[in-house]
Computed example of a mutant assay.
Amino acid sequence: MFGGGIGVLSSATVPLLAAVMPWAAANAVITIASTLLCTELHARFTFRTGRRAEWRQHWQSAGSATAAYVVTCTAMFILHTVQPSPGMLTEQVVYLGASGLAGIGRFMVLRLFVFATGRNRTRVPMRATNSARLPALLAA
């Protein structure tokens, strides 16, 4: 809910900023702002940590935001290569589609890595100290 809502607001804001700066710069500004806001909202409400997001969580979220930025910029580059003068509606559809797909991927990263706790954490230790525990670690 939060990511999708912020994504729709972002899609309306990027073209407004793109009127005064290059599209890639406008996308970067909106990506940074929306990532900060979404990370806070996800920490407090979606994943119910009961507290503000930590700097570690913001940095991890920034990694997924960078990937999302690349996806949306690539989609727009392809659009402008295929159709040199697309209309605003076409740009919005392509941006929202790319942003939506990237958002699903970002949500999975947040769920599985950034805000995962206990048994939900998918991180595997660098080395197992007891080989008898290895099957249990891999199954977790």
Results as ranks from 00 to 15, higher is better:
residue 22 P to A: 15
residue 36 L to E: 07
residue 107 F to R: 15
residue 91 E to Y: 00
residue 40 E to T: 15
residue 96 L to N: 10
residue 30 I to K: 01
residue 43 A to E: 12
residue 15 P to M: 14
residue 59 W to L: 13
residue 5 G to D: 10
residue 6 I to Q: 04
residue 89 L to M: 13
residue 135 P to Q: 11
residue 131 S to C: 04
residue 43 A to F: 12
residue 39 T to H: 11
residue 24 A to R: 07
residue 59 W to S: 12
residue 99 S to L: 10
residue 1 M to V: 04
residue 68 A to L: 07
residue 69 Y to F: 15
residue 122 T to F: 12
residue 104 I to N: 07
residue 109 V to D: 06
residue 65 A to F: 06
residue 60 Q to M: 14
residue 43 A to C: 12
residue 50 G to H: 05
residue 17 L to P: 01
residue 137 L to T: 05
residue 109 V to T: 13
residue 51 R to W: 00
residue 92 Q to Y: 00
residue 93 V to T: 01
residue 9 L to G: 06
residue 9 L to A: 12
residue 76 M to P: 00
residue 6 I to T: 12
residue 8 V to P: 04
residue 118 G to M: 12
residue 66 T to M: 14
residue 102 A to C: 09
residue 60 Q to W: 01
residue 115 F to Q: 09
residue 16 L to S: 13
residue 94 V to G: 04
residue 64 S to R: 04
residue 140 A to H: 11
residue 97 G to C: 09
residue 21 M to G: 00
residue 52 R to Y: 00
residue 82 V to Y: 01
residue 59 W to T: 14
residue 45 F to S: 12
residue 104 I to E: 02
residue 74 T to N: 04
residue 41 L to R: 09
residue 4 G to K: 11
residue 93 V to L: 10
residue 92 Q to G: 08
residue 34 S to H: 04
residue 114 V to T: 15
residue 116 A to Y: 08
residue 27 N to A: 15
residue 60 Q to T: 00
residue 82 V to G: 02
residue 91 E to T: 08
residue 115 F to W: 11
residue 96 L to A: 06
residue 84 P to H: 05
residue 138 L to Q: 08
residue 20 V to T: 08
residue 55 W to F: 10
residue 107 F to C: 15
residue 38 C to A: 14
residue 60 Q to S: 10
residue 61 S to G: 11
residue 72 T to S: 08
residue 104 I to H: 07
residue 127 R to Y: 03
residue 72 T to N: 07
residue 134 L to W: 03
residue 137 L to W: 02
residue 87 G to F: 07
residue 34 S to C: 09
residue 123 R to S: 13
residue 87 G to D: 08
residue 107 F to G: 15
residue 94 V to L: 03
residue 74 T to C: 13
residue 1 M to R: 06
residue 123 R to I: 12
residue 61 S to D: 02
residue 118 G to Q: 11
residue 96 L to D: 00
residue 79 L to V: 05
residue 129 T to K: 06
residue 11 S to Y: 06
residue 64 S to C: 14
residue 53 A to G: 12
residue 42 H to F: 09
residue 84 P to T: 05
residue 17 L to Y: 05
residue 66 T to S: 14
residue 7 G to P: 07
residue 77 F to N: 03
residue 67 A to Q: 06
residue 73 C to Y: 01
residue 17 L to F: 06
residue 70 V to S: 01
residue 52 R to C: 10
residue 70 V to P: 03
residue 11 S to T: 12
residue 62 A to Y: 07
residue 121 R to N: 15
residue 93 V to P: 01
